[in-house]
Design a protein around this nucleic acid. Structure first.
Lengths: 323, 323
DNA sequence: TTGAAAGCGATACCAG
DNA sequence: CTGGTATCGCTTTCAA
């Protein structure tokens, strides 16, 4: 393994000059540059990343903190890794599995200079504690957080939900039910607000049993159909879902019960995943990949102290066979 | 930011002794240890990771190289990250998106000491070229490779495919088609062998157009149904798939075409991912998480020069509604 | 049990 | 345009 010192000795120049060549400094004569470059190639030289990191005080590495990688995070992860790498940054994955201690590792790693910045998804530690790590480097969150020092790149779910509501109402459905996600998350609260505002605006009927929370999976979607459309109570003729999985469950169970879709029942998913495409489910497209880009650029801004451009995010509705 | 030097000065001991405390060396008196530890806590000291890496010549970081993270890789990624972290190693993601140049970055990063080792999935560069990086650190591959210096942790796909074939044949299907993956990969070759051996054994019909290669995605699965079941040619009544994604595509397109599953068509996926569970697709369970563990332990063995134990792997078939 | 000093392999400021 | 040298923060002999 050759190092900068050897290159300097062999070329007859100083380490400083060799370093300049390495960093493409303009203050090196072409002749010198050529000579040094040749020797580097001869010796098959590459600079040591750790030495650079130590010297510069930064690693060009960003940590991504999450409970675990799942299907929903996939586009976020891929987009983030890709964007970061385009700017010369590597991405390190920290999964906590819900263990606060393990999660804290990532934050400690920023403190000990192993990563320059952190992007977090869902976190299990106390918010104030996490916020206290902001002094060691920039942190951005994907999901919305109630902490001023940690910015979020998630979109306001209110608008997205509005889009779905608007759509079914335009198509003539008036009895609208909801399968919401996490009971007390900010996402769910926004969606509930959107629903209430919209129902009020169009003076549409609202029944308490038309709104469920804690519905995430296919199974729960199927179950919901039985509960919502099986009884003698007021039945909805449209359901908006927390995600495409739930929508998939609803569609398959409804078909099993001889309900015609979309005539008897309209179903709108969320996220517009492959699954929605595959099963032909109308879905609200959530530009997750762009949010990841924004997350990176936000970090980069803080890292370099320069304002980076942000993607403009927009929901859109992808209509398919279920509405 | 305090450093080791300050701790030494303040405590009245040398840097060497402080370092010993940090590394839990037994050759420090309890009194000294306590005193130094106290000062560290007072100053809120944490060692600088880069300095350690530079000094020790290793980073405790392992790179994972892949074209992109997809559903199939998810359990591998999660398991690898988890296992590595249990042993004090971080995982860095390198996605190439199919670009050989970007892929090479990961290997160059090992050369420049940013990662201690590499675990690779599918690679797009010339094998010989990749093999030449073995001198910079250990490399293991998930998928099987025809390169002696790069070990693989994948299971023999022959046995797994046999399991799927055996299953559909037992259930009375005789006209069996295949959606294979990468045309010239060892996985595909093993599966083709399994298919041919099995068809010969049971004297079942084989048509060239029943075997496709290069089928990985949902879309391609859908497309396959149109090609295979749309024409007037001999139609299969069972399809074995490269992975669950393909199976999902086949199932949804077949349903769209009013084919009854499993009566008219049996579908068997591979890997038994969440998706297979979700959509109720029969699938060959491939212990991917265990393979990731093995990958890490294999790397650790080479890194530490000690033999690490390997998990014993076994396929099994998970029957669901598509057979 | 402890200390002094030589690495590890770059960067960067100050002169010239 | 080039060189000398301090610096980044820790590890690791070698002595004592």
């Amino acid at each position: 393994m050759s190092n900068l010192d050897q290159i300097a000795k062999l070329s007859g120049f100083s380490k400083a000059t060799v370093s300049r060549v390495l960093n493409h400094s303009p203050h090196v004569s072409q002749a010198t540059r050529d000579k040094i470059t040749n020797i580097m190639e001869e010796l098959d030289y590459v600079p040591n990343g750790n030495a650079i990191s130590l010297s510069k005080g930064q690693t060009q590495q960003i940590g991504m903190v999450t409970e675990g990688i799942n299907e929903v995070m996939l586009p976020f992860l891929n987009s983030f890794v890709e964007t970061a790498s385009q700017h010369g940054y590597q991405t390190i994955i920290y999964t906590s599995g819900g263990d606060p201690q393990k999660e804290l590792q990532a934050f400690e790693d920023m403190r000990r200079k192993r990563v320059d910045a952190l992007v977090i998804s869902t976190c299990v530690n106390d918010l104030a504690l996490l916020g206290s790590y902001c002094k060691y480097g920039p942190i951005v969150s994907w999901q919305r957080m109630e902490l001023p020092e940690i910015a979020s790149v998630a979109m306001n779910q209110y608008d997205g939900y509005m889009l779905g509501l608007e759509h079914v109402i335009q198509r003539g459905y008036t009895r609208i039910a909801n399968a919401f996600g996490r009971p007390s998350s900010m996402n769910t609260l926004s969606r509930i607000n959107a629903y209430e505002d919209m129902m009020r605006k169009y003076e549409l009927p609202v029944y308490p049993h038309w709104s469920r929370t804690g519905v995430y999976s296919i199974r729960q979607g199927e179950q919901l159909v039985r509960e919502l459309l099986g009884g003698a109570e007021e039945r909805p003729n449209a359901i908006l879902c927390a995600n495409d999985l739930v929508a998939a469950g609803i569609v398959s169970e409804a078909r099993r019960q001889q309900l015609r879709i979309p005539e008897d029942l309209a179903v709108v998913g969320f996220d517009n995943t492959e699954l929605a495409h595959t099963l032909g489910i109308t879905s609200v497209y959530n530009p997750i990949a762009d949010q990841a880009k924004n997350a990176f650029h936000l970090l980069l801004s803080k890292l370099k102290g320069v304002e980076e451009e942000q993607q403009i995010l927009q929901y859109c509705l992808v209509q398919r066979a279920t509405t």
